[in-house]
Design a protein around this nucleic acid. Sequence first.
DNA 1: AAGTGGTCTAGACCACCTT
DNA 2: AGGTGGTCTAGACCACTTA
Lengths: 222, 222
Amino acid sequence: MEPATQVINLAGDPIYARVRDQLRQEILGGVFAAGARLKIADLAGRYGVSQMPVREALQQLQGEGLVLIEPNKGARVRKVDEAFIVNVYEIFGALEGLLIRRATPLLSAADLRQSRAIEQAFEAAGKQGDLDGSLRQNQLFHHLLYQRAGNAEALEIIERHWGLIDCLRRKHGFGPRRIAAVIDEHRRLLRALEDHDAKTAESLVRDHCAHAREDLVEQMRE
Amino acid sequence: MEPATQVINLAGDPIYARVRDQLRQEILGGVFAAGARLKIADLAGRYGVSQMPVREALQQLQGEGLVLIEPNKGARVRKVDEAFIVNVYEIFGALEGLLIRRATPLLSAADLRQSRAIEQAFEAAGKQGDLDGSLRQNQLFHHLLYQRAGNAEALEIIERHWGLIDCLRRKHGFGPRRIAAVIDEHRRLLRALEDHDAKTAESLVRDHCAHAREDLVEQMRE
DNA sequence: AAGTGGTCTAGACCACCTT
DNA sequence: AGGTGGTCTAGACCACTTA
């Protein structure tokens, strides 16, 4: 437990953010068993910080669904198994479907042009096997479109869980044919958006989420 | 600003919970203007507590969408206007629709019996004009059904926003014919559930959310 | 260059569980 | 009653903004 990886404050962002990010990675990496107690004092010692930033990090991870806090009782690791991934992707499907449906009639020609540009950057990164670039461009692509729906609250919920899924993706990667499939799905989505066909766009996005989930679950099984 | 309502710790629950609940009520009650800075030191003084519980309360209210925090910048009140209410109810519609669809095939005879019993308690409270009882039974009714979907993460997101909507309901009440309409919608939902008709149940729940939103927005306009 | 206000630390306090 | 561990306080620290 004590071979702690010290948290160093290189950049100017708060310590609780670093603790949160590292703790997320360690939970997803299996350092803490499912259901294990996360004792604040232990974590504070482990990361070389005091208790408060740890508390804040735990609260934020609870918002992502990774951790469960009971008042006056403490925090536990929530099990990140297939059921959990399925749940998160079900939320994605429902909310991203909603957002794309609302966004479709509101997209300007400039929005569509920018989406195409980002999609091309995604394709370039994908073809080079640049996992990090792929994830970044992919998020940009979806974020731009969903933003136009004008539902900041729904977008926030999605983005809160996105970091978690990205973390798993970085660990497990994509399946051999998944990148090509994503490109195809993105292109079809762009076509539906250009036609202002909200219904098709919604069902494409829902399928997109379902396929992403299937691929991630499959990668995690290996 | 300083005629503070002291937070007293009557029961055994944490101070941050009380600060959170009172701050929520005050934000929704219009004590803090939309977009106003929420300075931690001010709030700490106002409630007679130190800064940390205020920070925690703000974090949780951010999870509900009521407050926006920027690291190293502070917290602001998010405007609770019609657009915000619409956004929250859109999230409800998407997620509750998902949960009832998943729950329908899994409901046991005992579940349905219990739902009917809660629904009858709701009707009794409604007919007596017991607003508090109505809200409580209504939440119990939905919670029981959604729980069976087995998506704890989605349920948590819904419940996190429920307190906020309840707070608005307590303030503005229901429209003259809304209680009767809710009873009708609940009964139709129960019938669909008994028929294990997930598709109908989902569309009933989505409509239910839309109608609830329309009524609340109308009540708030007065 | 000082001021404002968010963030962090150390330690006290207190709720809950065990004996 | 004692222990464990979550919660709270007071004040120091530091990031960001004004001039």
